[in-house]
């Protein structure tokens, strides 16, 4: 094996398992400062910078559990799921899965869904841009039968569901949120996260609206997606054509 590869693997081992740092320590000079201290500087850099990246992606989770707890949890997360890409925009997608088996947060059953919602927010933030479809553009196309239409959702659209009121938990704990009393029995959440322009929106939908837009996103026609007779289809479409839910590019 290449000497360089061997030394880089030893270094990697030293960063993620301090107990296995001997192989790396043997490669480096003392020069007045213990090898273990020198390696610790690099270990700190890796963990501190990755923890900051996770805190940027999961600010509401951090607010819910507190900064000290979040940092300790992030350390465990980084060891379990180190970044496998130098693009940190991709880092953190496993947070919800990690939390589901992370015993110290087992008393907060809604927390993994908050992480899912924040991950959806980040994905929406960096998603491709697209011109929204407006009612005028739709009319220009001279479409005849509304039921046969297929709409393409804006490329930033992400769907999140939860058995808990995580949409309201997220709102109350986001940077400009107002504290409010929320009971975990307040029911499930059906959320569309979308960024038609510059701002990411977290839209709390009715179950019927959620199912409708989810079906459209899956390629269904309006007639196919419309299943709940109590759902106000005309109104939902009218709103969607003003709030940038659909992409101008035809499906």
């Amino acid at each position: 094996m290449s000497m360089l590869l061997e030394s880089q693997r030893a270094f990697l081992g030293a960063i993620f398992s301090p107990a296995a740092a001997d192989a790396a320590a043997a490669l480096i000079r003392h020069d007045g400062i213990a090898q273990a201290d020198r390696l610790q500087i690099y270990r700190n850099n890796t963990f501190i910078l990755l923890t900051e990246a996770l805190a940027d992606t999961f600010p509401v989770v951090k607010r819910l559990v507190g900064g000290e707890f979040f940092d300790a949890m992030a350390k465990e997360f980084i060891v379990a799921y180190p970044p496998m890409s130098p693009s940190l925009l991709e880092y953190g997608g496993h947070m919800a899965v990690f939390m589901e088996t992370f015993a110290p947060v087992s008393g907060l059953p809604y927390l993994p869904d908050v992480a899912r919602l924040e991950w959806a927010w980040t994905k929406a933030y960096h998603a491709a841009d697209a011109e929204p479809l407006t009612a005028a553009t739709l009319a220009d196309r001279g479409s005849s039968d509304l039921g046969e239409l297929r709409f393409r959702l804006h490329p930033s659209a992400r769907f999140v569901t939860s058995d808990f009121p995580v949409g309201r938990i997220w709102e109350a704990n986001s940077a400009d949120g107002e504290p409010e009393a929320i009971s975990l029995d307040d029911g499930p959440s059906h959320i569309l996260v979308i960024r038609p322009e510059a701002e990411v929106q977290v839209r709390l939908l009715s179950p019927a609206a959620f199912e409708f837009f989810l079906s459209l996103a899956g390629g269904a026609t309006v007639a196919e997606a419309f299943s709940d007779p109590d759902f106000d289809l005309q109104n939902a479409l009218a709103v969607a054509l003003t709030d940038g839910t659909f992409s101008r590019n035809p499906a």
Partner: peptide, 10 residues
């Protein structure tokens, strides 16, 4: 900053 695909972010 990368070893066996793991990114050290340093």
């Amino acid at each position: 900053s990368v070893v066996d695909a793991t990114f050290l972010n340093d």
